[in-house]
Design a protein around this nucleic acid. Structure first.
Ligand SMILES: NC(=O)c1ccc[n+]([C@@H]2O[C@H](COP(=O)([O-])OP(=O)(O)OC[C@H]3O[C@@H](n4cnc5c(N)ncnc54)[C@H](O)[C@@H]3O)[C@@H](O)[C@H]2O)c1
Ligand SMILES: NC(=O)c1ccc[n+]([C@@H]2O[C@H](COP(=O)([O-])OP(=O)(O)OC[C@H]3O[C@@H](n4cnc5c(N)ncnc54)[C@H](O)[C@@H]3O)[C@@H](O)[C@H]2O)c1
Lengths: 204, 204
DNA sequence: TCGGCATCGTGATTCGTTTCACAAGCGAAC
DNA sequence: GTTCGCTTGTGAAACGAATCACGATGCCGA
């Protein structure tokens, strides 16, 4: 499946869920409008799911949701750990929306002894020493990385060593990871800088 | 300038800054390696800056930084407001890294009366009623939106009405904005779902 | 001063993605 | 049962971006 398609699937899912239960069927045109893309693009994307829409009618909304979830691997619930329980890490830990999307935060870890045992949203912050065993024991394969940039690479190495297969990294630091490890970078400063470009350019 | 290029410029800037002051000159190959892209791609990107590297030598690191900042519109410092001072909003408010990237948080706003006047990192949370005047008075043109999804669109309308030209939206809700408004979406659940796809697929 | 080497800048090429356009298919109405 | 209108699925075309390949060019050492 094309990379570009994969990156749109969550968007479709979100749009479909936001539609409420009123509509039982949805056309590519309709979905395209709410998602802000071209309707042919929607149809081509959905065709990769082996999805069978009904000509003249559209797609069954609930069935399509299920197919999207299956394609995204969201049928099973993923266990996730958060490493680096500072400002951002605790905000993420408190976020209720992950559950709804198919993820379950099972542990918070920090290197700072002052933070250990401190409760954050029902979880107690644990030591980095517990990380490896917890990951192996609970078969955790995803991690959210919110340490300072300087620590990010070494923590990532640790996580991979412990068996983590996917990392969502918020530290502004490019991680060097093996090919078989999935890694995505979320960089807020970068986003603002891109906005800055367009705003500065638009004014010129 | 191609969209794809614009989205890489902040990355280059970040890499160059991370190199420390040791190197005064850097080749496209070197930058490409640290940024994880192809060196021809780097050269083509930089050529849009009218940047003049020196054949046989490379680019002057500091000069290149300056050119990148200029191209991104980071010579001037942008004032930013944060609307929705909950978990995520306060984490962002406390973040020190924005200053370094060329942004200055000048105000925090929330609709919840219980939050008003509460101090977050030197700023007092203000009422939504103050928003419009503050934006106009201080010539603020960028906003970070961290309200619940249900409120996002109406808050965005308000911001645009008040004169905001760029919005960084964290709420999982597609904003409908006029063409001349720059808007970027950061959706953490989406990121995790994309990771989920690759992890589930890789295992198959 | 000159030659060789490293690296840039960029036309040509390849690749992936988006968009177009339309035949095929389905349901509803009569 | 037949017609009509709507929507899908998909080949073909257009587009944009990444990569290749190499000529042009500046530096440095002999
Ligand atoms: N806070 C934001 O809004 C924001 C915005 C953009 C980017 N970021 C990035 O996200 C990361 C976290 O930001 P923050 O504001 O939460 O910082 P923070 O300093 O509040 O939190 C970092 C946490 O990581 C822990 N830590 C440090 N080294 C560690 C290690 N080796 N192993 C485990 N834990 C370790 C610290 O004890 C601390 O609790 C940073 O890289 C920052 O650049 C944050
Ligand atoms: N916290 C996270 O880690 C996280 C992760 C992913 C996405 N998000 C999204 O970011 C947004 C904020 O998340 P959060 O966890 O900080 O939520 P939160 O509930 O802690 O904070 C939301 C804040 O917005 C304020 N608010 C509500 N309506 C408002 C309005 N009309 N005008 C101004 N302010 C208003 C509330 O008073 C509250 O302070 C949500 O849309 C959430 O889906 C958050």
């Amino acid at each position: 499946m094309p990379k570009a398609t994969v990156e749109r699937l969550p968007l479709y899912l979100q749009c479909l869920q936001a539609m409420g239960d009123v509509e039982s069927t949805v056309s590519s045109e309709e979905l395209a409008n709410t998602a802000g893309v071209n309707s042919a693009n929607v149809r081509k994307d959905l065709s990769y799911l082996g999805s069978h829409g009904v000509r003249g009618v559209g797609y069954n909304r609930l069935e399509l949701c299920t197919q999207l979830r299956r394609a995204l691997g969201l049928i099973e619930k993923w266990s996730v750990v958060i490493v680096g329980v500072g400002n951002l890490g605790s905000a993420l830990a408190k976020y209720r929306g992950f559950d709804a999307s198919g993820f379950n935060v099972v542990g918070l870890y920090d290197a700072d002894p002052a933070k250990l045992g401190h409760p954050v949203d029902g979880h107690y912050v644990k030591s980095m020493d517990d990380l490896e065993l917890d990951i192996k024991e609970h078969d955790v394969s995803m991690a959210i990385l919110t340490t300072p940039a300087a620590a990010a690479q070494s923590v990532a190495d640790l996580l991979i060593e412990a068996g983590i297969r996917s990392i969502l990294n918020f530290a502004p630091s490019l991680l060097k990871v093996p090919d078989e490890i999935n890694c995505r970078q979320v960089d807020l400063a970068t986003e603002l800088q891109i906005l800055s470009y367009y705003q500065a350019a638009g004014r010129a």
